[in-house]
Amino acid sequence: MLEGKVKWSNSEKGFGFIEVEGQDDVFVHFSAIQGEGFKTLEEGQAVSFEIVEGNRGPQAANVTKEA
């Protein structure tokens, strides 16, 4: 699992980007967020995730919010 911080997200469009130190930003779709209820990410929020190869390149999977 990698750790990063949410660079920005748009809940209306359903995606955002995660900033990882020393690496390119990672695309995240809201379907990759683990948990119940409305899935949102806040700018600056710490997250853990895996990287998978998506249709348009690397993207985050199994995203969990850190406490």
Results as ranks from 00 to 15, higher is better:
E36K: 10
A60H: 02
G44T: 03
A61I: 13
A60D: 01
A67I: 13
F49K: 03
N55Y: 15
S11M: 14
T64G: 05
F17D: 00
K13Q: 08
G37H: 08
F17Y: 07
G22Y: 05
E36T: 11
V52H: 07
Q23Y: 14
V20L: 09
E50S: 09
E66S: 15
M1W: 11
V47F: 00
E43Q: 14
S48T: 13
N10K: 05
G57P: 03
G16T: 02
E43W: 13
S48P: 00
T64K: 14
E21G: 08
T40H: 11
G37E: 09
K39C: 12
Q45P: 00
R56N: 10
A32S: 10
K13T: 05
E19W: 09
A61N: 07
F15E: 00
F30H: 08
P58C: 08
W8F: 10
E42A: 10
H29A: 06
E66T: 15
T64N: 10
F49V: 02
F15W: 14
V47T: 02
E43K: 15
F15P: 00
N62G: 05
A61C: 10
N62V: 05
E3H: 15
V52N: 04
V47H: 02
V63A: 02
Q45D: 15
Q59S: 05
V28N: 03
M1E: 05
T64R: 15
A67F: 11
F49I: 02
G35C: 10
S9Q: 08
P58D: 04
F30T: 06
G14S: 11
S11P: 14
K65F: 14
E19F: 10
G14R: 13
F30G: 06
T40C: 15
M1I: 14
N10P: 02
E21P: 14
A67P: 13
Q23V: 07
G16H: 03
I51H: 01
E42I: 13
S48D: 03
K39P: 11
E42Q: 12
K13N: 05
E19I: 08
A67L: 13
Q45N: 08
D24F: 10
F38E: 14
V47Q: 01
I18S: 01
F17T: 02
P58G: 04
Q23S: 10
F38M: 13
S9L: 15
S9F: 15
T40G: 08
N55E: 13
E66I: 15
G44E: 02
G4D: 01
E42R: 11
A60C: 04
N55P: 15
G44A: 04
I18N: 00
K5G: 00
F17G: 01
G14K: 12
K5F: 10
L2S: 06
A60F: 03
N62H: 09
Q23P: 03
N55M: 14
V63N: 02
L41Q: 01
A32W: 06
V26N: 00
A67C: 12
S48W: 15
Q34N: 13
V6T: 00
A46L: 15
T64C: 09
E43H: 12
H29N: 05
V20R: 07
K39T: 09
V28W: 15
G14Q: 12
D25H: 03
S9E: 04
E36I: 10
G14Y: 09
V26P: 00
V47M: 02
A67M: 12
P58Q: 07
V28Y: 15
F15S: 01
F27D: 05
E53F: 14
M1C: 14
G14V: 05
I51E: 02
V63E: 02
G37W: 08
F38N: 12
T64S: 10
H29D: 08
